[in-house]
Design a binder for these strands. Structure first.
Lengths: 340, 340
DNA sequence: ACACTGGGCTAGAACGTTTTAGGCACGCAA
DNA sequence: TTGCGTGCCTAAAACGTTCTAGCCCAGTGT
């Protein structure tokens, strides 16, 4: 049996502080925002009064009235190791630029759409979308209202700024690495159905295989972007197994699932099968021995660029939407080896 | 050369919708909140007008005016695999209860204090703190203003509700498992300096060792709670190595770092050294072969309980602060084996 | 003497909602 | 008839900030 909702106790507002300090509310605002327009004596008085009363500025009211909220909305996939790696960089860069960050995660149950709506509802100045899966049409609609920066996805239409890694180069690095180790039957486990981000990597894989003269040996296996999907893909890989001696996975999470399930099934990695990941996430560095071989994206750099772009847009730099494509690098770990 | 800040374009508000639908703003609010007090005809008219104008409710204004915001603030450590596992459950439970979730992460650079301040600034109805590290005095101050639910930490003083796993039982499970495998020199790598959550586990380890008649063989090595800390601890472990054949780590992240660094140093896990983690995070399940041996906490259950408690507090159930202690279970993976 | 500048400050409007207090019309019981 | 409740609706007052316009006063150049 629940009782009635409790009455919120009276909160101390800017007015209370003003009264206590003997100044106007406007002046208190000036002091708390550290903008010019108040004497040192009053600054001290106001801060003192605020401390005594236990005043805490109300972000809702402030955000509502401010011209620019100085708030960046960030949407991310809770389960993605790579997104987790991007967040610290985003917090750091935003803080340095004087912006707050509003986080909104999506999960298997809570859609990306929902997470974007929440951020828009807060009237963030700009949105940074990590690895968005929404259709471009949807992003376009959102971008009509506020600047949108996408991270880790190539867009066909020019919607806001876009920071991404060159997947053609990335897949080429992966394939060439394996080819140099003597592998010829190199499969690709993709990012799963309805994963727009996966298309570039598939295309990159095909191009790289052709360039390596292995066009006839291509095989693309349905995957996903979680560890669990990797485990399922491993079953598929083994079931219809051809002559594959190496696999390039859509991302690190998937690669991890693959490695775990393969070893559990008695397939040695890299003894029987080499596995290469994609992202260079923290996750990829913690495999026993010297980590997962993976195509590394520069998470910190991408985070900093995304924030920089967002801030620039917010502050009025109204140049045409740009695309920043960073080159990936290959990190060689212990999940890939010379073909037996 | 930056230009001047762009003027935000005119947003469509509840008033515009009201005008278009030929009703008062108040009625639009009634319709959008799905509360009784409007005729079906007007409900349709309002929704129609809103759709045509592209109206989106402004969360800031709504939050500002509402008596109860129906907003739960969640503070978490961005790098923690276990926290990442808790979030989906929190989103799901909150959504089911009709609450929104505001996320605020802490990192190496952005302190937990900062993340808590941000949530308080938004006037969340309640705070859910995942694995908080702040001193109890600080939590006590926060709890004066709004309900605080802590997850995964034992509190000495009765501050709000607390959901946690019984660390004494957990460590006993770990030690007994290893003892049963023939290990006698079992070390503990702790959660690092200034980590209040680590104390219970250290105490639990000591108690368990004594109970197992291994009091003379205890060894506690400084650790931390990241993969990186695990790698460093591995170096310390090997440097001052005694007779240890098994290690219990503070959490899974740390355990992973240990395993990776040990193997890289040529120490076989579990051949030369058995390693047991703590949390049962997603991370623990993806070790090649059958995963990390770990003390599993029920993430989904904890998330659901935390949300349920928070909501109950918000809705006025003013009973004394309670502590919910859940029993952990042991998940046996491939990182532990019979003593050679 | 004058106009002008600029720093410090204040009053009051604004931001976009929700809530309060009440009005109107209708039906129903006494 | 009066009295009273009920369903639908509106006007206006909040919520706690920031912004705009303008006042006062001292200093400064003519």
């Amino acid at each position: 049996m629940t009782q009635h909702a409790v009455e919120p106790k009276k909160r101390v507002t800017i007015k209370d502080v003003a009264r206590a300090a003997g100044v106007s509310p406007g002046l208190v605002s000036i002091v708390f925002n550290d903008v010019p327009g108040a004497s040192d004596a009053n600054r001290r008085r106001v801060r003192q009064a605020a401390r005594e009363l236990g005043y805490r500025p109300d972000a809702r009211a402030s955000l509502l009235r401010r011209r620019h909220a100085r708030l960046l909305g960030v949407s991310f996939f809770v389960q993605s190791a790579f997104h987790g790696d991007l967040l610290p960089g985003i917090y750091a860069a935003a803080g340095a630029a004087g912006y707050e960050v509003a986080l909104s995660g999506w999960t298997a149950d809570r859609t990306e759409d929902h997470s974007i709506d929440a951020l828009v509802g807060f009237r963030c100045d700009a949105l940074i979308l990590l690895g968005p899966e929404a259709p471009e049409a949807r992003l376009e609609v959102v971008a009509e209202d506020l600047p949108v920066i996408t991270v880790g996805r190539r867009l066909v239409r020019p919607i806001g700024d876009s920071i991404r890694t060159d997947d053609a180069v990335g897949m080429r690095l992966a394939v060439e690495h394996l080819a140099a180790l003597g592998h010829r039957d190199i499969a690709h486990v993709d990012g799963g159905p309805d994963n727009v981000k996966a298309e570039d990597r598939v295309a990159g894989y095909r191009a790289a295989m052709e360039a390596a003269g292995l066009a006839g040996r291509m095989r693309v296996i349905p995957g996903g972007q979680t560890v669990e999907a990797g485990a399922e893909a491993a079953a598929r890989l083994l079931a219809g197994r051809g002559a594959e001696t190496a696999v390039v996975a859509f991302d690190d999470d998937l690669a991890w699932g693959l490695v775990a399930a393969l070893q559990a099934a008695g397939v040695s990695v890299p003894g029987d099968l080499s596995v290469v990941g994609y992202d260079g996430s923290r996750l990829s560095r913690i495999m026993p021995l010297s980590g997962l071989t993976t195509v590394r994206q520069d998470a910190e750099g991408m985070a900093a660029l995304a924030v920089e772009r967002a801030v620039r847009r917010v502050e009025g730099d109204d140049v045409a939407p740009g695309e920043i494509v960073l080159p990936p690098t290959l990190t060689i770990g212990s999940s890939s080896a010379r073909r037996a």
